[in-house]
Structures are given as C-alpha cells and as structure tokens.
Design a binder for these strands. Structure first.
Lengths: 199, 199
DNA sequence: CACGTAAAGCAAGTGCACTTGCTTTAGAGT
DNA sequence: ACTCTAAAGCAAGTGCACTTGCTTTACGTG
C-alpha cells in the first residue's frame, strides 16, 4: 500500500518503520475513525515505540496528513474530449471521494494542519500535485481550441473544486448530484447564459 | 460587546456569566491567539469557574465558535446598484476579514467544529444568517432586471465565496487583490467570455 | 569486519481539555 | 418572605498528546 521513498537510510529499518506506522494508521482510521485514532494505539499496532512516531512526524496531525495525502492520488483526471464532461466528471469524483470517511478525514486533517515546516511542506506538495494534474483538463481544452488561450486554468480549477470543499468542510451540507453540472455550466457560460436550467 | 439573549433566566447571573466569558475569550484571543487560548485562563479572567464554562458550552471548540460567530455579523452587504460591483466588494471585504487573526480563528473554528448538537446548531445558524443577507445582492439584481430570474442566488453566492474560504482554510495561499474581480467576471459571463483580461 | 552515527527503544513526566459527584447560591414564582 | 430549582462553585480525577534525557540497535562506510 505505502511505498516509502525515504531520505537518509534507503532500504532499511527506517523504511520498515514508516511503512508499518502508515499501515497501522490506515487500519485504525477505518475501524476507529478520525477522532478515535490514538497515537499510542498506532504505535502498538505497528510494533513501534510511540516516541519514534513523534520523532519522525512531530504530531498526530502531521502523521494523519502524511498518511491521508497518499490516498488522494487515486483521484484520476478524466479525458473525454470535451471540457464540460471532463470537469463535471472530475467534480463528481471529488465529491464522491470527499463523502467517504477517508475523504472527510483528509479534508479535516488539511484544514486543521498547523503551520510548522513539516505541515507546510506536506500541504504544499499536496496542492501542487493536485493542481498540476487537474489543470490538464483545461490546457487540453485550450489545445483543442475548445477554450481560448486567455483562460486561466488555475482559476477554473479553483472555482470548480472550491464549492465542493466548501460544503464538506465549512457548511457540512451534502452535495446534490446535479451540483457539479451546475457549477461547470455557470463557470463556462456565466450565470446569465446557463444557470437557469436546474438539470 | 456581547449582548446575551439567554434562554431560561433572562437578566440575571446567567447573562452576566455568559457575557463575562465571551468578553474574556475575545480579550485572550487577541493576546494569546487561537492556539494559545486556554479554557482555564478564560475562566480565571472572567472570574468564573472553569466547570461553568464546560457545563454551558461543552467544549473549548464550541465556546470559540459561539464567540467568533458574533464577530462576522460586521460583514455588511454592499448595495451599489450594479451586481458586479456588489459582488466584487463583498468578496473583497470577506477576503480582508478572513485575513485578520479573528477571521482566521473563525474559519478554523468552523472547520474544526464537531458534530455534537450544539456545534451543529451554531454552524447552521451562522450559515443561514450569512446566506440570507448575501443573497440580497443577487435578488436585487434580478428585481432590477440586471440578471434573469432563472439565476439561482444560492449558487452564485456559493461560487463567489467558496474560493476565498478555500484559499484561507485549505491551500493557505494569500488572495491576490484582483482575484475577487476575476471570480465575479468568470461567474457572470463565463470563463470564455471574460477571464482573459487579468484586470 | 570494525566502527560511527542516525534512528529506534525506553521510562518518566507535563500540560491541558474534559468529567463527575456533591454543595452552594441566586433569582423567579407563589 | 418562602421555596423550588437551574445554574454556578468546588475538588479531585482521567485520558491523551506531546516532551526529554538517556540507552541500545542496526545500517552503511571505510
């Protein structure tokens, strides 16, 4: 599941410990949930000393962040040949993922993460990677001539995904199935041009 | 500063305690910051027993939520006569508020709040009130004939504010001064029609 | 194969959010 | 004024994240 990529001591104990801890974290996350997960329990299950966890990750928060970020790499960027369909599918997949317990946990870990160097690094790495992949949908549309090259991919992606995150983290309302399409239509044609027809 | 609106015992001790605690919370929030604020310290400063705080609010989180929500009532809804200007001004004000320490604190309190009945109530009250006020910008535009009545005010507001909250809570990037205008233009005319000109 | 070092193990402790069982007080209704 | 009760005060305790000073282990290098 987890494949390490360690710094100083490539193949050895460090890597084993890291993998064991992350595996234990996932296991306990699914049984105990985000709130119920105790660091001591992770340590016990990973057969590692609690101190080792704190020395490597610094805090429970950072451990969760590190573990959960790997999960979201599953999210694939669709390529249907039409921007509208790509964006709608992407927003739907995102909403579906964020509705899972793991998705919820990731969102809350990201929102709660502190400002220490470790957390900062993890957060940045995450958003850069996410953005690099998702912008493809827009750049491909521009190459295709479907969108003018004056369009800013970053803005489009931000306006696409932020309402979804917003509902999950801030208002905690469910995302209706038709919401992704309404967002995309408003985004592509403007509210005047589109948002009347509640598909 | 805080004006109570108490349930069972209108004018008496309850109200005094509530006000004293909330005042102490604000005072310590500005000196100690969100992280540094300790419940015991609030109790001491408010000259109230710590237990009383826990009995009334249930948790530190809920106390913060209750205190901070009152602050955001400051945010006024502009009425310039043109939707575009209203929306831009509103997004700017929001971004400016969220950039303050109090704004940051509110966002994180909202994001971190749990799912107990108290937190749920506070959150819902907050968003309902915020939404009721901000939708005015859109409904007025519809009345004016500036926007067709097929436009969904809720969607417009959500798409307007969520990128701002998103940056503050999730990515933690600063909001560029021109971002509000770019969001509004994309929202009104669609990315094809507008977002090329980075004002 | 020896040795130096980074990381893991260990034990003991600290701070703070939150709990609980009981007592005291103040204010609202009669 | 008297009483009834909700809320405040109090004391003692619990759990868990996080810390620290020291020892031990095992990997990588000369």
């Amino acid at each position: 599941m987890v494949d390490a990529e360690v710094k100083r001591r490539p193949g050895g104990r460090s890597a084993r410990v890291r993998a064991a801890v992350l595996d234990a974290t996932f296991a306990l996350l699914s049984t105990r949930g985000l709130e119920g997960l105790r660091v001591a329990e992770v340590a016990e299950r990973a057969e590692v000393h609690e101190t080792s966890i704190y020395r490597r990750w610094g805090s429970r928060e950072n451990l969760l962040l590190d573990a959960l970020i790997e999960v979201s790499e599953q999210l694939l960027v669709p390529d249907t040949g039409r921007v509208r369909d790509d964006l709608i599918a992407y927003a739907r997949d995102l909403a579906a993922f964020l509705a899972t317990p793991l998705g919820h946990a990731l969102e809350h870990a990201l929102a709660a993460a502190g400002d220490d160097p470790d957390a900062r690094r993890a957060r940045e790495r995450y958003w850069v990677s996410r953005y690099e992949r998702s912008r493809q949908m827009v750049t491909r549309a521009i190459e295709r001539g479907e969108l003018p090259d004056t369009v800013d991919p970053r803005l489009v992606i931000e306006m696409l995904v932020s309402p979804v995150h917003f509902r999950v983290v801030m208002t905690r309302e469910p995302i209706e199935p038709e919401m992704p399409a309404r967002i995309v239509d408003a985004l592509l044609a403007g509210v005047v041009g589109s948002s009347g027809t509640p598909t």
